[in-house]
Design a binder for these strands. Sequence first.
DNA 1: CGCCGCTTTGAGGAGGTTCAAACACAGTGG
DNA 2: CCACTGTGTTTGAACCTCCTCAAAGCGGCG
Lengths: 220, 220
Amino acid sequence: MPVGFSPEEMQRIDAVVEKRRRVRQGEALYNNGDDFTALYAIRSGFFKTCVTSNDGREQVTGFQMAGEVIGMDGIVNDNHNCSAVALEDAEVCVMPFTMIEEMSRDLPALQRHVHKIMSREIVRENGVMLLLGNMRAEERLAAFLLNLVQRLHARGLSQSELVLRMSRDEIGSYLGLKLETVSRSFSKFSEEGIIEVRQRYVKILAPDALKKIFNPQTYV
Amino acid sequence: MPVGFSPEEMQRIDAVVEKRRRVRQGEALYNNGDDFTALYAIRSGFFKTCVTSNDGREQVTGFQMAGEVIGMDGIVNDNHNCSAVALEDAEVCVMPFTMIEEMSRDLPALQRHVHKIMSREIVRENGVMLLLGNMRAEERLAAFLLNLVQRLHARGLSQSELVLRMSRDEIGSYLGLKLETVSRSFSKFSEEGIIEVRQRYVKILAPDALKKIFNPQTYV
DNA sequence: CGCCGCTTTGAGGAGGTTCAAACACAGTGG
DNA sequence: CCACTGTGTTTGAACCTCCTCAAAGCGGCG
């Protein structure tokens, strides 16, 4: 959330953010087609968002963690275009979008903040498109791990150890790979001593090797 | 642009939109890294937007035509995250973003409009991710052609004939395929009597067949 | 006409998928 | 306590799609 508001302003902002909602592991915060009413700020827990083609193929479009905002997909058509499912028990702030719009008319800093959040999502998706369109399996997985650990580190967690909240299948869906390919790539990294893997526990032993895989040119 | 404004409001909106800029074929409207100052509404012409990885791989993230707005990628970091290149001579409205923000504080309908445009872009990119992550070459190309012709049709052009503004290479980059694969898929469609192709001229002979390829399940 | 960029087409190869089986681990119940 | 089940993961082998490399074709323009 942005900073630099007066006490009264903070009070108004708090009002938007006061409503909470708990989502249990496996439950959806919202589903494709649901009416759009609010954006959600994740207070705790871990989500995946995914879209589905009408013949049933699913694409995970992102994994979101505490501090991130989801639901922007619903604004265009007043109903959600994707589903957000909790990968672990979670709590979110429900921020009614009409209130956000109302307030951001009075508070330029908030307005700018909202715009930045949406723009950040556009830029993130540009990056995923680059990954899906150009990278090979191991590059994708390296990029994924580096991104994940970097975000976790920004939240005070380790920059080398992590416990994946999602299955191989969900990683594969996000990266445009089959779960077997994800598993094989994990094994390969492990054999090469780059990471240590035991199920969902991952320890990054050689972050530079991962970065080199992700972006070969830089290190040649 | 939204509707339902009073005369004075329209006047203010016109002021935002009054500045024009011409971009010749092959020139960039903005480049990756450029300072972000404005959004651009395309008045005429055709653009591609693309991101580049630091080892030089390029991913076309979209093709944009008259009536569409580009530049939202620049809002987060106050500089552009991708490049927008004209594929044919083009003219855009330069809409300074500070003016957009200022005005949308006064005009809720404009504010909502801005939000929708950004949300639409997020949703569009979700769709591309689904395409890149799940579809095979011919499905991608079918989806691409159908999307293109639908957008052209919405602008009063034919719903069966079109002239591609982009090369096979650019189509391939957008679809996560090599140009040869794009070319082969075109040829395959042509052999099957689904389309007629001569270089960049394409005529869709059997739109239903294309739709069937794009989304097999629906027609089984 | 001859050059150049783009496109088409072919042949061979690589990376990822598919199918299948075995394994790990958590939870359940005898 | 341990076998039993179910879900998720790993690993192997065969296959397929798409990529790579190469050459020829097309079309526009000086």
